[in-house]
Write a protein that binds this DNA or RNA. Sequence first.
RNA 1: GUAGCCAUAGCUCAGUUGGAUAGAGCAUUAGAUUGCGGAUCUAAAGGCCGGAGGUUCGAAUCCUCUUGGCUACACCA
Length: 595
Amino acid sequence: MYWKVIMKDIKNSWEKAISKAIAAYALSLNIKSDDLLTTRIMIQTPPKPELGDFAVPLFPFSKILRKSPHIIAADIKNIIEKLENKPPGYVTADGPYLNIRADIVGLAENLWKEIGTVQSAYGNNTSMCDQKVMIEFSCPNTNKPLHLGHLRNDTIGESIAAIIGANGADVYKVNLINDRGIHICKSMLAYMKFGNETTPESENVKSDHFVGKYYVEYNNWAKSSPNAEKEAQELLVKWENGDKDTIDLWSRMNTWAINGIFETYKRTGISFDKLYYESKTYTLGKDLVLQGLKDGVFYKEIDDSIWIDLEEIGLDKKVLLRSDGTSLYLTQDLGTAVSRHKDLPFNKLIYVVGSEQQYHFKVLFYVLKKLGLSWADNLHHLSYGMVNLPDGKMKSREGTVVDADDLIETLSDMAKQEIISKNREDSVGDLSETSSAIARAALNYYLLQVNPAKDMIFNPAESIAFNGNTGPYLQYMGARISSMLRKFALTQKDNSMTVAFDPSLLKLQVEHSLLKHIMMFPETVEQAGRELNPTNIAVYLYDLSRMYSRYYHDHQILRAGSDELIYARVVLSKMVLQVLRNAFSLIGIPFLESM
RNA sequence: GUAGCCAUAGCUCAGUUGGAUAGAGCAUUAGAUUGCGGAUCUAAAGGCCGGAGGUUCGAAUCCUCUUGGCUACACCA
C-alpha cells in the first residue's frame, strides 16, 4: 500500500502550516483580530518555477498585522522553519511573497506506483461521483451532410462527456435527430421532381451527400417557382396524415441521410448512448402545456392559442401552443425534456447548442421551472460560438460552407503527403488509418483549444501543421516517447538491467517541473469538469509536451550516465507518456505509437 | 430598439477564488544536429489587455459608462 499523491493535500498541509505560523506571529505581536480568521491564505503558482512550487502573497495580512508584507514574509518564514509538523520542503521569503518548494521528488515514488497501477485511470477523480449527467449534442438535420459547425458541436460534446466521466459522473450521451419538418419535405420534393429513382448506390455518392444535393436543388428550383413553398407545405401535411407513399420516401431518404451522417461520426470518433428522433417526439409536450394552463401558469388568448408571460425574467410573452392546437419547437423541447427525465432520472442535463439559441434555452428552462419540475434548476445550456473561416463567415447561400467529410479528407491527404515525404510509410503501419488519425487530432485539438464561449476562426492549414501548438505536434511527442521506450525495452533485454527507480537522481529543475505537472493532472481534469471547458485540458497538454520536448532535447535519457539514472529518466518518461495518453482521450486526439 | 455574448502582439489563441516583469503558436530575424524520431529545440523582436472613470495596498480579471463586432428577440426549427 502506498500513499496516493494528491496535489490538493500537499497544498492543504502547507496552508495549515502557514496559518499556524501567522496565528503564532499575531500572538507574538499581541494582535487579536477576527479578520485574521476570515482572511484566506492563497496558494498560488509563482511566475517562474525557480522561485518555488507554490506562492503565498502576504499583502492581505499587512493591514491586520500593521507591518509591511516584506517583513511579514521574512518573519513567517522563520516561524515555519521551527514548526514541529512542517510539511516536507522549504520556504523562502521573496519580497512580499512566501515561496514554497515542496518535496516533489520525495513523492515521485508513490506517484509512479499510482500511475503504474491505475494507468489509464490516472487523472480520474471523484468530484462528480454522485451525479448522473445526460448530455445532448450534435442533433443533425436529415436533409444535408454535416459541416464544420457541427464538428465543433460534436467534439465539444464528446470531450465534455469524457471529462465529466473522468470526474466520476455517470454520463449518458444522447442525440436528437431532426428528421421531420418542412426542411425535410423540401429535399423530398426535389427528389420526387428530379430524382428519377436514382440512389446513392447508383450514383456512387455518399448517402447523406446524395440527400443534400436535393436540398440544394430544391432551393435552386424554388427561386423560379412561386409555388415551391406551398408544395412543400402540402407534402408536410401528407406526411403528418401518414400518407403511405410520402412516408415510404421519407423513410428511404432519412435512412440515406442518417447512415451517411453516422459514417462521419465514425470517422470523427463520435458516439451516443441513445438516439432520439424528432419524428417520434414532436407531439410530446402538448399535454404538458394543457396541464400548465389548468394550473394557471399559462393563459389562453381569444384565438385559443396558449401563452406564457415572461415578464419575471425580463422578456416578452411567448406562444406555447398554436391556435390550431399544434406544437412549436419550444413545446417539443418541453416534452422531450420531461420524457428524458423519465428515461433516465438525471441530476443534470447539458445541452450543447450554439450561442444563437441562448434565448430559446432561457425560456425553455423557465417554463419547465414554472411547471413545477424540481430538476429544472439543473439544466444547462453549454453555449458555443460560431466557427468562421479566415476569409469570412460560412454562408450556405454563398456556398462557403465547409463540408465535414471534405475537410477530413483534405486533412487526411495532407497528413498522408507529409508521411510519404518523410519516407515513413513503412514505419507507420496502415498509412491511411494513421493519416486519418492525424487529421482527427488536428481537427479536434484546433477546435477545442478555443474556449467554447467564443467565436473562432478555423484555419485548416494551420490546424494540420506539424509545428507549433497543434494536435499532430502532441501526437508526435507521444510517438517519440513510445519509440524511445521500445528501444529501452530492447536494451533492457540485452543487458537484463535490474535497477530500482531512484527518484532522488532526478535533480534537474525541468525534472522537478515535469513531476509537478504530472501531479497536477487530476486537478486539471477536475477544473475542466467544473467549468465544462475542454480548453483546460488542451492547454495542460501543450504545456506538458513542450516541457518534455525541451527536456528530451537537452538531456539524454537512454544514454544518461548510469543505469540508475537511465532508469529514473525512463520512469519519468513513462509517466509523461501515460498522462499524454489519458489527456488525449479527453479531447479526441488518437494516440499513435508511430507516425 | 431591447437583451445576451465578445474585444489581449501583425495573425490565431491562452490567461478565475483580483497578486511578482501579461504568455504561447504562426509569420519575421538569428542560432543549435558525431543524439533516444529535426514533424525538434534556443533566442531576438513584437503590448495604451478597445476607450474613460470607479472599487482596491494591487485590476486583463470586479463595477459603471462608452465605442466597435456578433447573435437573438416568428403561431420557423
